[in-house]
Design a binder for these strands. Structure first.
Lengths: 210, 210
DNA sequence: GATGAACATGAGTAGTACTCGCGTTATCTG
DNA sequence: CAGATAACGCGAGTACTACTCATGTTCATC
């Protein structure tokens, strides 16, 4: 896996096409799912010939990777806004905000339920590194969250008798669990089962409690 | 999705072929991953013509479903053995045993790292119900674990002021988290990162504490 | 030894991802 | 300006893939 994009458009028209392709891909994902997705249909929806799609993206994996990238930027931007407005004082409040933003995006952003930040689940080398050549997808997300949460988690150095892992790792684990529980919540209920969403917050608060 | 198997073999020779196909599939998964898997190559490895594969299995999804089924039976059998030997007194001990068995299988059973009990991650109708037509995969696993763990979890009825969900749901959530953390553990380290495995136990113990 | 069920087979069908050579348009350069 | 260079546009063609099905063979049972 190299990058999610083969050639970035620089001219006006092709930039619009680039975005149209991503939008068509996202819509289709909601309609036919990952396995039902075909490049041909994405191209048809986006009203571009198939060759053009392959000018921008190295293939289906790259297409999904680019979509995941866009989702992550979107998420980080919106969460940053919420954080500035709310100024959470502890990890619990941060967790709530992050989960609420995820839920909001899941309800409103097309295709988000399938790719979110790249965790389609197929654990091949190719698709794990959709977002980043070195880190796996959720790791890239964790990295971004880490910078947002810096102040609220404890320092790295710690009491050797404390069984808790270093906070970066704890965040990584928390993220993996949140991903799993929230996916379940939306599998059970298309709007996200409220009990499971609440339980996700409770579990994370308990685990990350400083 | 109907069932993972189209026609169960009854005669000797075809039963051997049936198992050979599953074995070949499992091996190949370890070598080329889910996206690299082809029916043709599975058939070649198993030394059966392609038509025979399709006599038994409705397709690739079914093949993986049958493998997941076999894995689950295997897991439940081995865990039952461990439970009888150890007679755990609380949920924590049970969690440890289950995780240790999962880790052991992940290290020794071909293909287990990719399909385990069916959670390949592609959340299409087709692959979610590999194991069961009604419940999703992990739900089927939770159901089996529930019968094994019956005595150790609290009763269903509970104090309305208690924020914890009913124990069946708690088990379901715990399973989802364990799946996520352990997959991470084996993504980081092919033998399963010991720190992450330990942390998985700690998180589950904390969450399921009665 | 006859009858039906289970089993065996692989060329053929339909559909996919992705390429590549060539034509067109935009942008730069002197 | 003109000419050169780069970005963009295109879709028939290639090389795969999953899966079928008609036809033949072996087995269990009476």
């Amino acid at each position: 896996m190299h990058t999610a994009v083969r050639r970035r458009p620089v001219q006006r028209r092709s930039l619009e096409r680039f975005e149209r392709i991503l939008d068509a891909c996202a819509e289709l994902l909601d309609e036919v799912g990952y396995t039902g997705l075909t490049t041909k249909e994405v191209a048809r929806r986006a009203q571009v010939p198939i060759g053009t799609l392959y000018q921008f993206f190295p293939g289906i994996e790259g297409l999904l990777g680019a979509l995941a990238e866009r989702n992550l930027e979107h998420f980080v931007a919106r969460l940053s806004g919420r954080l500035e407005a709310a100024q959470p004082a502890d990890v619990g409040a941060l967790v709530d905000l992050a989960i609420e933003e995820y839920v909001a995006m899941r309800r409103s952003v097309p295709g988000f339920g399938v790719v979110d930040f790249g965790a389609i689940g197929i654990e091949d080398e190719a698709s794990i590194h959709l977002l980043d050549a070195v880190l796996d997808n959720n790791n890239a997300v964790a990295e971004r969250l880490w910078t947002l949460a810096s102040g609220l988690l404890p320092e790295e150095g710690q009491d050797p008798a404390d069984p808790r892992p270093n906070p970066r790792l704890a965040l990584r684990i928390a993220l993996e669990c949140a991903d799993a529980i929230l996916r379940l919540a939306f599998r059970v209920d298309p709007d996200g089962d409220p009990v499971l969403i609440a339980e996700c917050k409770r579990l994370l608060r308990g685990y990350l409690r400083t």
